[in-house]
Deep mutational scan, measured.
Amino acid sequence: SSYVCVECNFLTKRYDALSEHNLKYHPGEENFKLTMVKRNNQTIFEQTIN
């Protein structure tokens, strides 16, 4: 599966890399929402900020 930060167009295969991205680029933000999307037999988790 892949993880994408929709706000930044940041894409990674690792959830911990997304967490690091959030700490660096969205410090103090807590209203993240992950949406699971299936595309071409791949699972993509799209992160948006509410």
Rank of each mutant, 00 (worst) to 15 (best):
K38P: 06
F32C: 14
L23Q: 10
K24G: 09
G28P: 04
L23P: 01
C5F: 00
Y25E: 15
K13L: 14
E7G: 14
R39Y: 03
F45W: 14
N50R: 05
E46W: 01
Y15S: 14
N31R: 07
M36C: 13
Y25A: 15
N31H: 04
C8Q: 00
K13P: 15
F10Q: 04
L11E: 11
D16H: 05
S2C: 03
L18T: 01
D16I: 06
E20T: 07
F45K: 12
L34P: 01
L23N: 15
Q42E: 13
C8F: 00
Y3D: 01
K33H: 05
Q47K: 02
R14W: 14
K13W: 12
F32A: 10
M36K: 10
S19V: 05
G28D: 05
T48Q: 06
T35K: 14
H26Q: 00
N40V: 05
N41K: 14
K13Q: 11
F45V: 08
V4A: 10
V6H: 11
N50S: 09
R14S: 15
N41H: 10
V4G: 09
I44V: 12
R39F: 03
T12V: 11
Q42V: 10
Y15I: 03
R14D: 13
S19G: 11
N9H: 13
V4L: 14
L11D: 13
I49M: 05
K13T: 15
N50F: 07
S19C: 10
F32I: 15
F45A: 14
Y25D: 14
V37F: 06
V4E: 10
Y15F: 07
L34G: 10
R39C: 05
F10T: 09
E30A: 14
A17Y: 13
R14C: 12
N22E: 01
N41F: 03
Y3E: 00
L34V: 12
R39T: 05
C8L: 00
H26D: 01
G28I: 02
E20C: 03
N9F: 11
I49K: 11
N9V: 03
L23H: 08
V6S: 05
N41G: 08
K33W: 03
Q47G: 02
R39W: 02
K33Y: 01
R39L: 04
Q42Y: 13
K13D: 12
L11S: 09
T48M: 10
N9W: 03
L11A: 07
V4R: 12
L23W: 12
T48N: 06
C5E: 00
R39D: 13
C8Y: 01
T48W: 08
T48H: 06
Y25V: 10
E20H: 12
P27W: 08
S1P: 00
E29T: 12
K24M: 07
G28E: 14
K24P: 00
N9G: 06
I49L: 09
P27L: 07
E20W: 01
C5M: 00
E46C: 01
V37M: 08
G28K: 13
K38N: 12
R14P: 14
N22M: 03
N41R: 08
